[in-house]
């Protein structure tokens, strides 16, 4: 390989064949699931997809872009509110409303980024949280979407139940696949490399000709799009929205938990993390307060003893990167 690329001393790792073929197998099984699976599993998949997409976006922002935000719930909630508002007020079918809501959320992210980007590091984290609170309070005072009381999505009343379940499931599946594929391809691209350079040092990256501001803005907007998508999907299946539930900081807390358990700054991190989170949620959430204490305890243990998460642990043990975006230095 090096013979043909003598003038390039950085090469991409080959696209990961094994995980991709496993993914295709998963996809084949998943697409047909409505025809053989139980309704419960479809519902469960839609629910967990929202957490997954949201966590992927947080990982993109923090793990690759170095922007640690605790205010991503702003976009999650906006996505949810857009899909409900379009459904209830304009009669837009939620199936069309979901992607539209994601796009509207991304547009909202443009002016909000002007505020957020004036801050750095820890200030950025707090600033994004403040922005999310401002969005929550603003929505709580818009009476057409129920104000502080919230509202129920009525657009699905009268829609055939099986059709709705299958459609919601396929939309969720499409969103999941698109999220993974786009992030993988993006991070393997030149822009992806630039993004990671910014994370490691903004000054150094900009001295190498990387347009830091534009790059950060692009990632911030893409993350908002993804979070809006997750929120739209979640509330279209949950039906009931209120500002306190939609803009709860818990959403971001769960995303951070998922990414930390899985491994920050690794694509497979949120995948593994979401799976672990789902297992814990599925089997232990009936234990009330103890469940929440356990989640917190686990996060502390992971951050103390396994900083790179389960994905990092697997990598250290096996030496393998399953969804690699690395470029490896090869000498001539």
């Amino acid at each position: 390989m090096t013979v043909h690329t003598q003038h390039i001393n950085m090469t991409r790792t080959p696209l990961p064949i094994l995980p991709i073929s496993l993914g295709v197998l998963f996809l084949g099984t998943a697409i047909t699931m409505p025809f053989w699976g139980q309704a419960y599993w479809l519902h469960e998949f839609v629910n967990i997809s929202c957490f997954f997409i949201f966590a992927m976006m947080w990982n993109l922002l923090a793990g690759y872009g170095g922007m640690v935000s605790v205010g991503q719930q702003a976009f999650f909630g906006l996505g949810g509110y857009f899909v409900l508002a379009m459904g209830n007020l304009a009669g837009v079918s939620p199936f069309i409303g979901i992607p539209l809501a994601a796009i509207l959320t991304a547009i909202m992210a443009l002016p909000l980024s002007k505020l957020a980007f004036r801050l750095n590091g820890g200030y950025f984290a707090i600033g994004t949280w403040v922005i999310a609170e401002v969005v929550r309070l603003t929505v709580a005072n818009i009476s057409i979407v129920g104000g502080g009381s919230g509202t129920s999505l009525t657009a699905f009343r009268g829609v055939d139940r099986v059709f709705r379940q299958h459609m919601t499931y396929w939309i969720a599946l499409t969103c999941v696949v698109a999220t993974v594929a786009l992030i993988l391809l993006f991070l393997r691209s030149k822009q992806g490399l630039a993004l990671q350079a910014i994370r490691d040092s903004e000054v150094a990256a900009s001295s190498q000709g990387v347009d830091v501001i534009r790059m950060k803005l692009a990632v911030y907007v893409v993350a908002a799009l993804g979070c809006g998508l997750a929120g739209a999907l979640y509330f279209a299946s949950n039906l009931r929205i209120s500002p306190d539930a939609a803009f709860s900081v818990n959403w971001t807390a769960f995303a951070i938990f998922i990414v930390m358990i899985g491994g920050v700054g690794r694509i497979e991190g949120p995948i593994i993390g979401t799976f672990v989170f789902w297992l814990i949620n599925h089997y232990l959430s009936d234990y009330g307060t103890w469940y929440l204490i356990g989640l917190g305890g686990l996060a502390i243990v992971m951050s103390l003893y396994m900083k790179d998460g389960l994905a990092g642990f697997i990598h250290r043990k096996t030496g393998k990167d399953f969804l690699s975006i690395k470029r490896i230095y090869r000498s001539k």
């Binding site: 139980q38 309704a39 419960y40 519902h43 629910n47 919230g150 979640y234 949950n238 039906l239 009931r240 209120s242 539930a245 709860s248 959430s285 009936d286 009330g288």
Partner: peptide, 21 residues
């Protein structure tokens, strides 16, 4: 018997679970 955790989203989730599962 299911816990809503005083959270409307959680209440909806456990209801769907009770119905579907």
């Amino acid at each position: 018997y299911k816990d809503s955790q005083s959270n409307p989203s959680r209440a909806a989730t456990v209801t769907a679970e009770l119905i579907l599962k």
